[in-house]
Design a protein around this nucleic acid. Structure first.
Lengths: 118, 118
DNA sequence: CGGGATCCTCAAAGATACTG
DNA sequence: CAGTATCTTTGAGGATCCCG
């Protein structure tokens, strides 16, 4: 009564990392649609930003979240982490060219949101 | 040791419905970046689609999920539910003008995904 | 300053079964 | 066909403390 049979739908564990959905929109959204991901990228659009500055800019997201998303983005080569100083510790994050390529999309989202009072 | 104090960050319960984030990208993403939401809208782009057809098109999402997202989209006036027949039951979903306005954004996502092998 | 390690919770998502 | 109802799992996300 609890295994075998292959229910009406299956497939699990595609939560993060190289999503295999057939729909390109779905795949793309998993990369830049995650909670805070778009905001982070967008706040890096002009210049490198230091970790705690990012935390302040995104008032509402925890350090843990931001750290987590930044690592995700780093592993996808969308942002680069740079150590500015050792003592006291200082690092900054900036977009790669690939990361910058997502800005077009994000800006479309932003404009749509604003135009429709989302 | 487990209440009072107002930790370094707070704010909860903005999961769904009228998100108050200051960042427009974040707000927009909560509307069209949800799991399956973008795909659903995109699959309705050309014509009304019936419920079970949608389920088939998005192989991988459960009926429950799709139903849930459709109701979300309906309540935001992005899709309209139409009863085609009573016996046997037949309904279809189609985009409103507002729903269609999101297609530009979604298409940007799709193109970006495909261009970068996401 | 920039995190890492823990613990905890709740809500989202999955599985399965049922119905008008 | 187009959903509802229910139960369970899981893991994302929050809170807190700590550290070099």
């Amino acid at each position: 009564m609890q295994n075998g049979h292959e229910g009406q739908q299956s497939r699990k564990r595609n939560s993060r990392e190289t999503c295999l959905e057939p729909c390109a929109i779905e795949r793309g959204m998993r990369v830049i649609g995650g909670k805070w991901t778009g905001s982070i990228i967008y706040h890096l659009k002009d210049e490198p930003v230091r970790f705690n500055d990012l935390v302040r800019m995104l008032g509402g997201a925890s350090k843990k979240m931001i750290d987590q998303r930044l690592k995700e983005l780093e592993s996808r080569n969308m942002v680069v982490r740079k150590v500015l100083n050792d003592r006291p510790v200082a690092v900054s994050y900036e977009l790669t060219d690939f990361g910058r390529s997502a800005l077009k999309v994000l800006d479309a989202v932003r404009q749509w949101s604003e135009a429709n009072d989302i």
